[in-house]
Computed example of a mutant assay.
Amino acid sequence: MNENDTTANFGKGFVWVAWVIGIALLVFIFQDLLDGQYNPNQNPKLSMQANGKAAVTLEQNRQGHYVTNGAINGREVTFLLDTGATQVSIPAHIAENLALQAQGQQRVQTANGIITVFTTQINELRIGNIYLYDIAANINPSMAADEILLGMSALKRVEFSQTGKQLILREQL
């Protein structure tokens, strides 16, 4: 083997390493952009109404959904607002991380058919500067998503109105 072959092989290896590093950097950079498109409400716009009640303005994502960061019992979570869901529905793997306790089970009708879920209670749910207490919820072992469906058991406790691609949630009077 001569010196030119060794240098050429080293050069080819270096080019491959450079390409892998370049692609990894692009993925890292664009992942933030993609995350922002899926959840444009990572830091939702907060305000106070003239009567002192809290309000949160959410932007639609590219799919037309309202996804936002929030908290359950002080732990950060991601919510997908779902006015078609009767209860807040929490994937089992997230419920385990939140240390939510199953209090019973029931059969429910979902878009994918009838399933068994476990009932639970959320002590505190926060969206921006809106706090809700003692919210009925379900732990759903069939959900693999990383978002919690924010159903009507929570949404019925806020006023909401949609204007264009914005949804405004307000504390009830």
Rank of each mutant, 00 (worst) to 15 (best):
K165W: 07
Q60P: 12
Q121W: 06
V67R: 01
T83H: 10
L100Y: 07
T116N: 12
T119V: 07
G36P: 10
L33K: 15
N39A: 14
Q121N: 15
G164Q: 03
G52S: 02
A54K: 04
L173K: 04
A55K: 09
I114Q: 15
I148R: 01
I127M: 10
I72H: 03
W16S: 09
V15F: 09
T86P: 09
P44R: 11
G70Y: 00
G70T: 02
V56W: 02
A137N: 06
T86H: 09
T68D: 02
N4I: 08
L33T: 15
I115W: 07
N51G: 08
S47V: 10
G64N: 11
Q166C: 08
L46C: 06
K165E: 14
L25R: 01
P44A: 13
T6P: 00
N69A: 09
Y133A: 07
A71H: 08
V20T: 10
V17D: 12
G151Q: 02
A71G: 03
I139Y: 01
E159Y: 04
I114G: 10
T120Q: 07
N9T: 07
Q60N: 09
E171N: 02
T163I: 14
T116A: 14
P91D: 13
R126A: 10
A111T: 13
T78Y: 01
G151T: 04
R75E: 13
M143V: 05
R170F: 01
A154W: 00
Q172I: 09
A145D: 15
Q103W: 00
N39I: 10
P40M: 13
D32K: 15
Y38F: 15
I130C: 04
D146F: 02
F10K: 12
E147S: 11
G22C: 12
L150E: 05
T78D: 03
F30A: 13
G64F: 05
W16T: 04
A18P: 12
N73F: 01
L25P: 06
I168P: 00
G11K: 12
F10W: 08
G11I: 00
A71S: 13
A99F: 04
E96H: 08
V17M: 13
A99V: 03
P44T: 12
A85F: 06
L150W: 01
V158H: 05
M152N: 11
N39S: 13
L167N: 02
A145S: 15
D146V: 00
N9L: 14
S153M: 03
Q106I: 11
A54R: 05
Y133R: 14
Q109T: 15
D146H: 12
G74E: 08
S153N: 05
N138S: 13
N2A: 01
L169K: 00
G151C: 01
K45E: 10
T110K: 05
A92F: 11
S142G: 09
I127P: 02
A92D: 12
D32E: 15
N61G: 11
A92Y: 07
V117Y: 06
T119H: 11
A24C: 14
A55G: 04
S142C: 07
Q42G: 15
P40L: 14
T7F: 10
V67A: 02
L26K: 06
Q105G: 08
N129M: 02
K165F: 09
T78W: 01
N138G: 04
T6W: 06
A92K: 10
Q87C: 07
Y131K: 14
K53Y: 06
Q106K: 12
L132Y: 09
G74V: 00
F14S: 11
I135E: 04
I122A: 05
